[in-house]
C-alpha cells in the first residue's frame, strides 16, 4: 500500500502537470482567438472567389484553360495538412486516418503526397509513400508567401502532367470543440452551377475569358490554399485549447481523489496510533 509520502509526491507531480496543461491552454486560447478572427475575415472573399471561378468554369469549354482541363486520373496528389505538435486531442490522428483510407481507395493509381506539418511528415514518411514535398514549421508565422509556395508546386505538377488530380486534406474549423476532416479537390477546378438563374445564358467576358482566367486562377488557388491553411491552424488551436482544458480538468479530479486517499490514510494512521497508546496505557494499568 502507498505510504503517505508516496501520495504526497504524486499529488505534487500531478499539480506540476496541471500547471503545464493550464499554460498550454492559455497559450492556445490566445492564438485561437487571433486565428479565429483571421479565418472569419478570410472566408467571405475566398468563398465568393471560389464561386466566381466555379461559375466561369461551368460556363466555359473546359479545354480553354489548362487548369480546367480534366484528365483521366492516374496520378493523384494529396496535400495533407497536419500540425507540427501533438497535445491537441485527435486532431492529427483524424486527418491521418482519413487520408490513409482515401489513399487506399485509390488502388491502381499512383499517389503522391505533399505533407504540411511534422505529424504528417513523420507518419507518412516512414511508411513508404511517395512524398514530393515536406513542409515543417509552416504555421509559426503563417503568411501569404507560404500559400504561394504550395500553389507553385501543385500548379507546376498539374501543368507538367505529373499529377492529374489534386486534393487538399485538412481540418475545417467549425468551433473550438469541433473540426471536420475535409477532402476537397483543388485541381482541376470544379465547375459550380450558378443557382441564382437556372436558365442562365452565357457569361460575357471583358477583355476575354482566357485573359481573365490567367489573372484569376493563380489568385484563386492562392486564396484557397491560404484559407485552408488558416482553417487547419484555427482548428489546431481550438483542438489544443479544448484538449488542454480537459487535461486540466482531469488532473483536478485526480488531485481530489489523491487528496481524499491521503486524508483517509492519515486518519487511519492517527486512529491506529491512538489505539496503540490507549491499549498501552490499559496494559500498564492492569499490571
Amino acid at each position: 500500500m502507498a505510504s503517505l509520502r508516496d501520495i504526497k509526491q504524486r499529488i505534487a507531480g500531478v499539480k506540476k502537470t496541471q500547471q503545464i496543461t493550464r499554460a498550454l491552454k492559455m497559450v492556445a486560447a490566445v492564438k485561437f482567438r487571433k486565428a479565429q478572427q483571421s479565418i472569419l475575415q478570410a472566408r467571405p472573399y475566398a468563398n465568393r472567389l471560389n464561386e466566381i471561378v466555379g461559375h466561369i468554369a461551368h460556363d466555359l469549354d473546359r479545354n480553354l484553360h489548362p487548369l480546367l482541363a480534366e484528365r483521366a486520373p492516374a496520378r493523384i496528389g494529396y496535400v495533407i495538412i497536419t500540425a507540427d505538435q501533438g497535445l491537441c486531442g485527435s486532431f492529427n490522428a483524424n486527418i491521418i486516418r482519413r487520408a490513409e483510407a482515401e489513399i487506399r481507395a485509390q488502388e491502381g493509381n499512383d499517389v503522391e503526397l505533399i505533407l504540411i506539418g511534422k505529424k504528417g511528415v513523420d507518419y507518412f514518411g516512414k511508411r513508404g509513400y511517395k512524398v514530393i514535398g515536406n513542409y515543417l514549421k509552416f504555421f509559426k508565422d503563417l503568411s501569404f508567401k507560404q500559400a504561394d509556395e504550395i500553389e507553385d508546386i501543385i500548379r507546376e505538377s498539374y501543368l507538367k502532367e505529373q499529377l492529374d488530380r489534386i486534393y487538399l486534406v485538412y481540418n475545417e474549423f467549425k468551433s473550438a470543440m469541433r473540426q471536420d476532416v475535409t477532402i476537397e479537390q483543388i485541381l482541376p477546378i470544379i465547375p459550380i452551377i450558378p443557382d441564382e438563374s437556372k436558365n442562365l445564358v452565357e457569361f460575357n467576358f471583358e477583355p476575354d475569358a482566357v485573359k481573365i482566367l490567367d489573372v484569376l486562377i493563380p489568385r484563386y488557388l492562392n486564396v484557397k490554399i491560404w484559407r485552408v491553411l488558416l482553417e487547419s491552424y484555427t482548428s489546431e488551436m481550438g483542438a489544443r485549447m479544448t484538449a488542454m482544458e480537459n487535461a486540466t480538468e482531469n488532473s483536478n479530479n485526480i488531485i481530489n481523489d489523491l487528496t481524499l486517499e491521503y486524508n483517509k490514510l492519515r486518519q487511519e494512521k492517527i486512529t491506529s496510533e491512538i489505539l496503540e497508546i490507549v491499549s498501552g496505557s490499559e496494559a500498564l494499568k492492569g499490571s
Binding site: 466566381i52 442562365l200 452565357e202 460575357n204 467576358f205 471583358e206 489573372v215 484569376l216
Partner: peptide, 19 residues
C-alpha cells in the same frame, strides 16, 4: 473602373465578368 474604361451596371444586367 473596368480595365477598358468605366462601366455602369443596372439591375438585370446580363451576366458578365471583368477585371
Amino acid at each position: 473602373p473596368g480595365v477598358a474604361g468605366y462601366l455602369g451596371i443596372k439591375a438585370g444586367h446580363e451576366p458578365f465578368v471583368t477585371t
